[in-house]
Each structure stands twice: as C-alpha cells, then as structure tokens.
C-alpha cells in the first residue's frame, strides 16, 4: 500500500489534454488504477465510450501506454487477444522470456454490465492474465444518458423518463461485482474514486495476481447525474457512506469489507444532490424513496453475511 507521496513517483499514464467533461469520474478512476499498476509496462484496452472517444480523438492520444480500442462490447475479448499474443510471442522467443507486461481493459457500465458482459465473462472464465476495470457511472453517458442495467432504481434517464406514468428507472441495479465474484477468479473488488488508497491498493492487488481480476470502480458523471462538476469525488464518498456502494474485495474466494461504515447515512444524502433523482423528493414519491432505502439496506445486510469477520 503506497502513500500519496510514494505514488507521485510513479508515472501518471493518462496525459492531460483529453476531452472528457470537467469533473469526469472516469479519468480519475483511470489515473488511480494505473498508478496502482506499478512500474511494469501496461497495455490498455478500452471499450467504446466516453473514456475511449475523449482520450483518442485523432491525431491525439492521452495514453502514455500502448492502447487499443476495438468496439463497444468487446474490450475484454480484445485484451484477451493481446494477452494471448504476448504469451505466444514469448513462447516463440520474439519477446524476451523475462519480460513482464500487464494488461488492462476499461469499460463503462454500458460496455460492461450490458453489451460487453458476455465478452467479459468469457475472458474471465478463460483465465487470461488481465485486469478488467468497469468505470461505473450508471448509464450510457457517451450517447446521452440512456439507462443501463447499472442505473439505480428511480433514476431519470433519457430512456427511463419521469412523467405521470413512470418515475424514472423501474428496476434496481444488477450486482455485477457479485456476478464477477461468481466466476471464481483470483481477485474481484469494488472501489470508489473517493477512496484513493483503497482503490490504488486494490489495483495493485489486481495487477499482481496471476490470472484475471475485476475492479468495479464508482466513477460519477456530473453531466448525466445532473450534479455540480466539483462534486464527483464528494458524491462518491457519500455513496460509500450510505452503503449504496460498499467497498470490498473477494480475494481467492474470501470476501472482505475494505472500508467499514459504522453509521450508514440515509440514502437521501446520496440522491438529493443529483438532479436525476429530483422527482423522488416529491411527496407522492415518498414510498419509492422508502423502497430505495430498503433495497440498499437489504443488499447491505446480505453482503455483510458474506464478509469474513476476521
């Protein structure tokens, strides 16, 4: 576990001059993950999405690493191919046998929870030595805030609107982190850009394991969440404190809460600053608000049962 001062000695692998929105959580996530990757060369793959588009607008690339974007749903498969090439070329003696290289794929929640889930599941099952990082901002933000299976219940999205007959997204979130844990891969963790030490440590572990690792990183989208630009980190902290986004890891099958929350704040504190939840605070939606709280409580309690108490 490195201190911030120690981390400053590592290369910041994402250059400025990219064209993500002011206050974007994705680029914070990428910087912190790659700081955790250590000193070995890292090859980055990226699913189509805000991160990919805004960091590689021709002729500029923000990546100081080898970088590949293929399409939306296949970042995991693509990087699995890159990693396979590395193994084969090493076997063929075209890359020195002692050369170490790390492989990481980044995808948003749309490219990970939804359209890329099969590709991700396949790559993890095959056991490639790679890290997959989902930067979860809870909707298709690149194309203009359409709901994904990571969008929270009750959130407004352009394809889950608010009107007389419907109050935003009707369904709860898919729990992707647990789905990935069920793949029985060496390392799975849920992290947040608000907890840099927790996140960079998890990234370090993810890169260190031999075989596949998955990180689900909470990475707000101020634009899509109708949130002030300067609040990305702050709202992420609240997500953790309310129990909306528990921080934990599953290392070789052992579940461990990495950041304890003793007095969970009410979910309203997470919802209120975000314009996408504005309608929930109308008196007629009190029941929905209560339901969201109870969903969070139930998920929290269920998760607690999985943690090792040591």
């Amino acid at each position: 576990m490195a201190t911030l001062k120690e981390l400053t000695h590592r290369e910041d692998r994402l250059a400025g001059g990219h064209r993500l929105c002011a206050g974007c959580g994705a680029s914070i996530a990428v910087r912190q993950v790659l700081l955790g990757a250590g000193v070995e060369p890292v090859v980055v793959g990226c699913a189509t999405g805000c991160l990919e588009v805004s960091t590689t607008i021709y002729p500029y690339s923000s990546w100081k690493t080898p970088f590949i974007h293929n399409a939306f749903e296949n970042a995991a498969a693509t990087v699995s191919g890159v990693e396979s090439a590395f193994k084969a070329l090493q076997r063929a003696g075209k890359i020195p046998a002692d050369k170490k290289m790390k492989f990481v794929a980044f995808g948003g929640d749309g490219g990970t929870y939804d359209i890329g889930l099969q590709s991700l599941s396949g790559a993890m099952e095959r056991g490639h030595d790679m890290v997959y990082v989902c930067y979860d901002n809870g909707a298709y933000m690149n194309t203009g805030i359409q709901r994904s299976s990571a969008t929270p219940k009750g959130a407004w999205a352009t394809t889950a609107q608010v009107g007389a007959a419907q109050q935003g997204k009707l369904q709860g979130r898919k729990d992707l982190t647990q789905i990935m844990a069920a793949h029985n891969i060496p390392y799975v963790a849920q992290a947040s850009i608000s907890h840099w030490k927790d996140l960079t440590t998890k990234a370090e572990k993810a890169f260190a394991v031999e075989g596949p690792a998955f990180l689900n990183v909470f990475a707000p989208c101020p634009r899509g969440w109708r949130l002030a630009y300067n609040k990305s980190v702050e709202i992420s902290k609240i997500a953790v404190q309310t129990g909306f986004w528990p921080l934990y890891e599953v290392e070789d099958g052992v579940w461990r809460q990495t950041v304890k929350v003793h007095n969970r704040k009410p979910i309203e504190e997470f919802l209120k600053p975000q314009g996408r939840f504005k309608h929930l605070f109308k008196p007629e939606n009190a029941d929905l608000l209560a339901e969201i709280q109870s969903d969070v409580d139930r998920a929290w309690e269920q998760l607690q049962k999985r943690f090792e108490t040591a």
Partner: peptide, 19 residues
C-alpha cells in the same frame, strides 16, 4: 490503420479554454 504513433500527445492539446 489510423494508428496514433505517438503516445500521450494530447499533452499538446489545450483544454484550458473550457474553463
């Protein structure tokens, strides 16, 4: 193949004007 042969060259792109 639309490769960008230089890494991290967005450092030359100015986004300060967005501010």
């Amino acid at each position: 193949g639309a490769v960008i042969p230089e890494s991290g060259n967005s450092r030359d792109y100015v986004t300060g004007g967005w501010r």
